[in-house]
């Protein structure tokens, strides 16, 4: 059964880049959001299994989304895909419940490795 996946990034290029870089054998139905608020709306109205989440975004940033997911106890896995690679930031998102951190730009190799590691493919 296909996994419902949300890609949340304010950049169209980054969303497309991620979509194209997902492994061919990754069976997913993809929806997108271009900021944190849109992402929360999707999460609250649809059954999303996995989120690829950018951090630096307008309206509501990725940390805000993670906090809301935690507060509202939304049932989904989150993989952070961000250019903000400071160790403190990586630690912070992991503490907020993120499954993994991928440095932008997200390459096919990095994505495949993470998805394999957590048994998502």
């Amino acid at each position: 059964m296909a996994l419902n996946v949300l890609i949340c990034d304010d950049s169209l290029l980054a969303r497309n880049q991620l979509k194209k870089s997902l492994p061919a054998d990754f069976d997913a139905t993809i929806v997108t959001a271009s900021n944190g608020l849109e992402a929360l709306t999707v999460l609250q109205t649809q059954d999303i299994g996995l989120v690829f989440l950018d951090l630096t975004m307008p309206e509501l940033d990725g940390v805000g989304v993670l906090e809301a997911i935690k507060a509202q106890a939304l049932d989904c896995l989150v993989i952070v895909v961000s250019a903000d690679i400071q160790p403190q930031m990586q630690q912070r998102v992991m503490e907020l419940g993120a499954l993994a951190f991928i440095q932008k730009p997200a390459s096919a190799d990095k994505l495949a490795a993470v998805l394999h590691k957590y048994g998502l493919i």
């Binding site: 630096t56 400071q86 932008k104």
Partner: peptide
């Protein structure tokens, strides 16, 4: 949009170096 994202990533790398 593409340039914005490149700038974004470059800023992230620069900030990481600066922060360290």
């Amino acid at each position: 949009d593409c340039l914005q994202e490149l700038v974004n990533v470059a800023m992230g790398q620069a900030s990481d170096k600066l922060a360290r």
